[in-house]
């Protein structure tokens, strides 16, 4: 009875007191527009893309009419072009170019009056990387990677693996692609060496296949060095909850910007990879 009274009272309180959203300010309509350049370039690739659009008050729209030029160490290497699409509000215009990058190279991308200038970061030194197999309380084998990394900058670790299951006769019974969670971290002058543990998830499914006696796991362990702005952007996306109805109470997130005369973010990563193959008995 007491609880019913409480609930009824609180329902009344909530109904009379909480007021839905009241708009107090709306962005004014304007024809002003700003060039936006976006691009994640990978040092290991030779074909790259940047995407250009116009940032406007009533929504971003593709910018396929820009003069784009790509410079490496001050030398013009390409002048890509783009073609307009049928859905300009859904996707920015893509400009594809060919270039080779080495650590320390200065890359400049001009699009109209906007310009992004970045340096190719030094890849990290991996002092060692190991892969360990252990059995959990549930009897399922787990694989963890541990890498000791030396550097001074911003990094991301990606772990991708192909897991093959074999029966007792050595016949292949399953193949699955599994990944570890991406991890972002930074090293600075005070802490230049960091040990990172990355668990490989998804092995439970591979081990659940009938007649599986042992697994063969071939994993690629990739460490990408990046500049601070891209590192911030990745974290920003982790924090972004614009599409979450509950995020209305959260303070807005700010996406980083490194484009002069416009907005957006262009960055390039340098990667090192280590690959491993390990066999694990699951019986």
């Amino acid at each position: 009875m007491l609880r019913s009274y409480h609930i009824a009272l609180l329902f009344i309180l909530a109904a009379v007191s909480c007021r839905p959203l009241e708009t107090v300010w709306t962005f004014p309509a304007s024809d002003d527009r700003e060039i936006s350049i976006q691009g994640y370039l990978h040092g290991r690739d030779s074909i790259h893309s940047v995407w250009c659009s116009y940032a406007k008050a009533d929504g971003a729209v593709e910018a396929a009419d820009l003069d784009v030029a790509v410079y490496v160490n001050g030398k013009l290497v390409d002048q890509p072009t783009s073609t307009p699409s049928d859905y300009p509000y859904l996707h920015p215009a893509e400009y594809t170019f060919k270039a080779f990058f080495s650590p320390g190279d200065r890359i400049k991308i001009k699009a109209g009056d906007a310009c992004a200038a970045i340096s190719v970061p030094e890849p990290p030194d991996t002092l060692y990387t190991t892969m360990n197999v252990s059995k959990g309380l549930d009897g399922v084998s787990r694989v963890k990677f541990e890498s000791k990394i030396q550097g001074n900058g911003y990094y991301r670790i990606d772990l991708m693996a192909t897991v093959r299951g074999f029966n007792a006769d050595g016949h292949l019974v399953s193949v699955s692609q599994v990944t570890g969670p991406s991890q972002l971290f930074s090293l600075d002058n005070e802490t230049t060496v960091q040990s990172i543990m990355v668990p490989l998830s998804g092995l439970k499914l591979a081990q659940s296949v009938k007649n599986t006696a042992y697994l063969e796991c071939t994993a690629i362990f990739r460490i990408s060095a990046m500049n601070r702005e891209l590192f911030t952007l990745f974290n920003t996306w982790a924090e972004d909850s614009t599409e979450d109805i509950f995020s209305r109470f959260a303070d807005p997130v700010h996406f980083p910007n490194n484009v002069q005369g416009g907005i957006g973010l262009v960055d390039v990563t340098s990667e090192v990879e280590r690959s491993f193959t390990i066999h694990a008995n699951i019986k």
Partner: peptide
């Protein structure tokens, strides 16, 4: 702090 305009932003998976 209120925003000035909209822009496309690339996600870590390469979408916009």
């Amino acid at each position: 702090t209120v925003p000035e305009r909209y822009s496309f932003v690339m996600t870590p998976s390469g979408q916009f």
